[in-house]
Amino acid sequence: MSLVNSVPEMVLTTKVDQLLNWTRKSSLWYMLFGLACCAIELMQTGGPRADLDRFGMAPRATPRTSDLMIVAGTLTLKMALRTKLLYEQMPEPKYVVSMGSCSNCGGLFQLAYSVCDGVDKVIPVDVYVPGCPPRPEALTDGLILLQKKMSEEKWLVRPSAEEAALLS
């Protein structure tokens, strides 16, 4: 009796990339970055009903240990420069989810003099979640979308510059 046959269910063959991505996407730690009203919905999403923990997501207090920044709320100009700083403090690879109309495009506060119309003016954004505020379901959906994006990334063989241009 060969060894391979004795443990058929216990062996999984996979690619290293897939394995890495699977581990990464299943423990996505997000930074607590509630800026305004959307932060309340972010908290509710982390709460018992929507329960983000089941996706392996846990809130972190500091940018240095987080993989994901959920920009939840209105980004004012005074805050914008700090947001950039916080983003730069996060270790690579890092992702940004823009939650709510305000951080997508300024939303209701496009009329304001002190609001930065969209967080993408200061940092790159991976997923935009629309809504004012987005419901916990919507945010969860956005995060699943991000997980999907993460699972398609390549780490061992990086695409060359031309390939990357073609892909994008």
Partner: peptide, 9 residues
């Protein structure tokens, strides 16, 4: 840091 100029709006 969250001054959204609501009064001006």
């Amino acid at each position: 840091y969250l001054h959204r100029s609501i009064e001006k709006i």
